[in-house]
Nucleic acid binder design. Structure first.
Lengths: 155, 155
DNA sequence: GAGTAAGCATTAGCCGGCTAAGTATTATTC
DNA sequence: GAATAATACTTAGCCGGCTAATGCTTACTC
């Protein structure tokens, strides 16, 4: 229903630097669009990433999913439980190693492949609108640097 | 506690473009660091933005906060309720217009100003480590374009 | 083989974010 | 002045994300 008109996202005067305030703002607005597009497929943002993993290879250990999504175990567990309830995946304990849970797609889950791809195209197109090829490369490069910075193992 | 070692954040082969997968990944890792720094101040990520608003001017209408934070009313309402419970802000109904709620800082809230500024400096420094001044400018510029793209009013 | 360590997943509970629906108050309009 | 619309906030409930604490298997060590 005609999503709200995303207000001006708080340009912050006290911010020591703009990047740290820009990143969450961009991410939130970006996620809102993704959510609105994915809602038509009955998916929540984040769930499409899991499906992509399974489309590539299946079944998968839940631990593997957790690792690759770079998320904590309870996060993936809850998400998987919901998606199982929604009928897009199945879970079963592995026979060989009763600790692990194997995650597979249902037919319904497989059917989402093309629609999700379409959503991702639309999302990316809108996100990078007005950026030249060089700009996009630059942005990708810079974001990867930042990602490495904030990802760096700390101990 | 010795945060997990932030795994590789799911480089996604199916992604139509890298930007849409990079943004959430960066945002999540960035937020995790912010959370870890803010936890020492007993704040959750996002709450510092509200405090910044109040340090600048006070009191504020809740509606104003909601608008400036670019958030939906229930989101700010819940956050404010928690912060009130935590003793950093107070809320009271306005006498002139009984619909509005006025939000003010407590002494405890005022005392957080310097610590929060320090956290933001540290966060920004870590985020932009290894980026030249031009790189930072570029990144800021490009993120602003993307922000405009994903923020664009849609109806 | 017993005891301990490591790995995998779950439960409970919090936080920021959202939508949908409702309440109360003030402004408008006729 | 009464009916209607607009505004401000709340409640309920869901989703992704997290930490802390628990349970259950398998592997390792002695």
């Amino acid at each position: 229903m005609s999503t709200n008109g995303a207000e001006t996202p708080a340009r912050n005067p006290e911010a020591s630097g703009p990047v740290s305030s820009l990143i969450p703002a961009v991410a939130r607005a970006h996620r809102a669009i993704a959510a609105s597009l994915l809602r038509d497929l009955n998916l929540a943002p984040g769930q499409e990433l899991l499906l992509m993993m399974l489309w590539e290879r299946e079944p998968r250990h839940q631990a593997e999913i957790t690792r690759e999504l770079a998320v904590e175990p309870p996060t993936s567990a809850k998400m998987l439980a919901r998606m199982e309830r929604a009928g897009v995946i199945t879970r079963e304990r592995c026979e060989d190693d009763r600790r692990v849970v194997l995650v597979s797609l249902t037919e319904k889950g497989r059917g989402l492949r093309e629609p999700v791809r379409a959503v991702w195209s639309a999302l990316e197109e809108r996100t990078t609108a007005g950026l030249s090829a060089e700009d996009q490369e630059q942005l990708t490069r810079l974001l990867n640097v930042v990602l490495a910075n904030v990802t760096a193992h700390r101990d």
